[in-house]
Design a protein around this nucleic acid. Structure first.
Length: 464
DNA sequence: ACTACCAGTAGAGGGAAACT
DNA sequence: AGTTTCCCTCTACTGGTAGT
């Protein structure tokens, strides 16, 4: 929008001063306009990364006594210096970089060099044929690091369903104090809208809209995986939906509306999350000030919530981004399809979703143990028929249309199997399930005779 | 012909120091 | 106790192409 304004202003100016612009449908941009539009294309984080690594490269050149200005180097000298740099660079404290960081660094320096040399010649160190020696040295360096130190990733971990309930029930996360309300609303938005760790910082009040049916829409105009621009011309941002509150349920919509109602009158800050006022102001009913909530408060949000609710992190990496992991991992447990998940999270590739499904060490051990069959027991022979029917069937029959089954499964056994599945799902993944809400199914005798062509289809939906 | 993989970019998260 | 600004390090996401 800003770009448009700039352009129209400049065209108005130029129509006054420059009689050449007689075509009403065109805009004649000035150099300043072009620069502004070019700058609009840049992403701050990427530029930061470029700057950081180019500074590091320059410091290295200084330390190694490379005195010639960078811009004057020929390709051979530049390659030699880069080879030395990637062999010799270390973290502050002389520790070794993680391979992933060096990988990011290589790309950042490629961008930096491309920028510097662009007016005179094209430098693209990604070209592994032209910069063969550099690529081999870089590759060797990474392999050396990988063989000499632990290079496992510290991915964000998820919360479990019972922990979500503990948090929502905790006296510290209620709506009677500004701090509790902030925590609670932050928790709802990140969980229900599958926000990334940093999204709440840039969330604007105007992006959160109440619909007539008392549902809430959270519209985020541009995201990491909906970056817009020339490569993604159909980008329309991510639209998140929070359903209307139900009686006897937790009430996210009411909580979010309460938070909005506590904004100061004529609030000028566009951000949704606001700074909590001093105790004195709070006493007078002014919960929030006309300033955005600071970075520190944002960054420590989930850590504070977890501490205040006395949840045992148990070695897990619980950070703000965990809320996104939580949503996705719970959907996986509940059998929501990848396509549906991607629709909500805005991921465009399976790889994006799959990054969250990497199992924990504990789950992996359990899954491997499933491959070891149990010894036969004479008492179990009666059970064998039951298990055999399902052993070839990976999917939970609760979630798929049973009409496609080739083998015949007695209805009474199917129901029994479903109950077992529900129980094991609850036990394995600690999904709290109010047993009083489960349908009580009693089909004791189903007798069908001469039934060559009879199909019995039973659908049980225990989670609704 | 097709898809798994990885190159390349956009983020997250943590910390220090100075400030309110 | 919370905020701002800067720096550093590493994770997460996409899309094109190398490889089967």
């Amino acid at each position: 929008m800003k770009t448009k304004e700039t352009l129209s202003t400049s065209s108005n100016n130029s129509t006054k001063t420059n009689k050449l612009t007689t075509y009403e449908r065109f805009v004649i941009p000035t150099n300043k306009d072009l620069q502004a539009i070019q700058a609009y294309s840049r992403v701050a984080n990427t530029d930061d990364s470029t700057k950081t690594w180019m500074n590091l490269f320059n410091s290295y050149r200084e330390a190694a006594n490379f005195t010639n200005p960078l811009e004057l180097l020929d390709d051979t000298t530049l390659q030699e210096q880069l080879c030395q740099f990637f062999c010799g660079v270390r973290k502050s404290g002389k520790k070794e970089y993680a391979p992933s960081s060096l990988h990011v660094g290589f790309a950042a320096i490629a961008r930096g060099l491309s920028d510097i040399f662009y007016p005179n010649r094209i430098i693209n160190i990604h070209d592994k044929h032209k910069w063969k020696r550099l690529h081999e040295i870089f590759d060797g360096r990474i392999k050396q690091i990988q063989d000499n130190q632990d290079t496992s990733c510290k991915k964000t971990d998820a919360l479990e369903m019972c922990e979500i309930k503990t948090i929502l029930d905790s006296p510290n996360i209620q709506t009677d104090t500004p701090k509790g309300l902030t925590y609670r609303v932050w928790f709802w938005l990140t969980l229900l809208c599958n926000l990334r760790g940093g999204d709440p910082k840039r969330l604007k009040n105007s992006w959160i809209v109440l619909n007539e049916d008392h549902s809430i829409e959270v519209n985020i105009p541009r995201e990491k995986n909906n970056a817009g621009g020339a490569k993604n011309p159909y980008n329309s941002g991510q639209h998140n939906y929070i359903p209307p509150d139900l009686p006897n349920n937790y009430s996210p919509v009411a909580d979010i509306l309460l938070y909005q109602s506590k904004r100061p009158k004529n609030c000028k800050t566009s951000e949704f999350f606001l700074k909590i006022n001093t105790p004195r102001e709070i006493y007078h009913g002014n919960w929030f000030s006309d300033l955005k909530l600071g970075k520190n408060s944002h960054d420590n949000m989930l850590k504070n919530i977890v501490a205040d609710c006395k949840i045992d992190a148990n070695g897990r990496n619980l950070v703000n981004h965990s809320m996104r992991s939580t949503g996705i991992s719970l959907w996986m447990l509940l059998g929501i399809s990848h396509a549906e998940q991607m629709d909500i999270t805005g991921h465009r590739t399976l790889a994006g979703i799959s990054a969250y499904s990497t199992s924990t060490a504990q789950q992996r051990k359990k899954n491997v143990s499933l491959l070891i069959p149990q010894k036969r027991n004479a008492d179990d022979l009666n059970e064998e028929c039951l298990t055999k029917n399902f052993s070839n069937k990976k999917q939970n029959p609760l979630r798929e249309n049973t009409s496609g089954n080739q083998g015949f499964i007695p209805a009474s056994q199917l129901l029994r199997y479903d109950q077992l599945e529900i129980q094991s799902l609850e036990q394995d993944h600690k999904i709290p399930q109010d047993s009083s809400k489960l349908p009580i199914i009693n089909i004791e005798n189903i007798n069908i005779q001469n039934c060559n062509n009879v199909k019995v289809e039973v659908i049980v939906k225990p989670f609704e």
